[in-house]
Design a protein around this nucleic acid. Structure first.
Lengths: 154, 154
DNA sequence: TGGGGTAGGTCTACTATAGAGACCGCCTCC
DNA sequence: GGAGGCGGTCTCTATAGTAGACCTACCCCA
């Protein structure tokens, strides 16, 4: 709580509306680790180094293209490192860099929260979906077809 | 560190490759708050309740469509609440729900990390971009045009 | 009495991004 | 000698996000 309230203060220092994420560390880091795969990669590499195909097997529903791209981006940002071994055929190993290591701690907090609260979230979601919006969302009723609820992938 | 290593253990319990994010709290929460806007909304609402247009002004580069959608999703998951006041014209206020409040603490950790490390990240990025890949990325050189580096928006 | 502003959204059209799946050269194993 | 694994890249298509006009209803001010 104390931590949170201190963070709230800090939030107020950042211009949320800033267009360039380069000026807002929050948006910067979220753009990096907030995508669908980065954090999973980091989690996998936190356990031990992985080779390309190992990662592909560990997170089997990522495409090779996205795997390549995600790893490249993480490497670019110094969160992981890439080691090529001159075997035949060459093997490539990815490891967590110190910067990536330092991310584990804050990530752990988030994981904990997710673990604790995903039950509540699902409950809330079910409740929301169960209540078929009798009150019109739009205060000044237009024709309003069906609200296009964003579908989260399977 | 202790926190992180405990998290690593926890990671190993989750099937990262699971297709249905519903089975993996980590993916579930990341899909929720990992998108471009959700966390910014939560940050804004952490400071004080906001009305729709206030949020739009606070995060001026979000489109109204995405604002609506993001708020709806957050409401659906019980992270924020929506209060309609029967004024003329009606005004709508968004507030952080208890569940959203509980997210502030883990988020704060992430914000701190971002704050501390975004300098390192930028440095690493500059270093990476400055080294124009003399070693071919692909071990078994195909024709390999130019690697399509993902472009993060402005 | 009518023009502009504010409110909370929705709609369509466009564009950027992610996903799928084939392909690559080279090597090993059966 | 064919299959399969290695670490990727390629193109194509589906999906998600963006921009911005539009909507109804009210108020204020002239």
């Amino acid at each position: 709580m104390s931590n949170a309230s201190s963070a709230i203060e800090r939030f107020s220092r950042y211009p949320l509306g800033e267009s360039q994420s380069v000026h807002c560390p929050v948006r910067d880091v979220l753009d990096r680790i907030g995508d669908k795969w980065s954090m999973l990669m980091i989690m996998a590499l936190a356990m031990r180094p992985h080779r390309f195909s190992e990662l592909h097997r560990a997170v089997h529903d990522i495409s090779k293209r996205m795997l390549t791209q995600t790893l490249r981006d993480l490497e670019r940002d110094g969160l992981i490192t890439r080691h090529v071994f001159p075997t035949k055929p060459p093997s490539v190993e990815y490891r967590l860099a110190p910067l990536g290591q330092s991310l584990l701690d804050p990530m752990a907090g988030l994981i904990d929260w997710a673990d604790r609260c995903h039950g509540d979230i699902h409950a809330a979601r079910a409740r929301f979906d169960g209540t078929p919006v009798d009150v019109p969302r739009q205060a000044f009723t237009a024709r309003s077809k069906v609200p296009p609820v964003r579908k989260k992938m399977a």
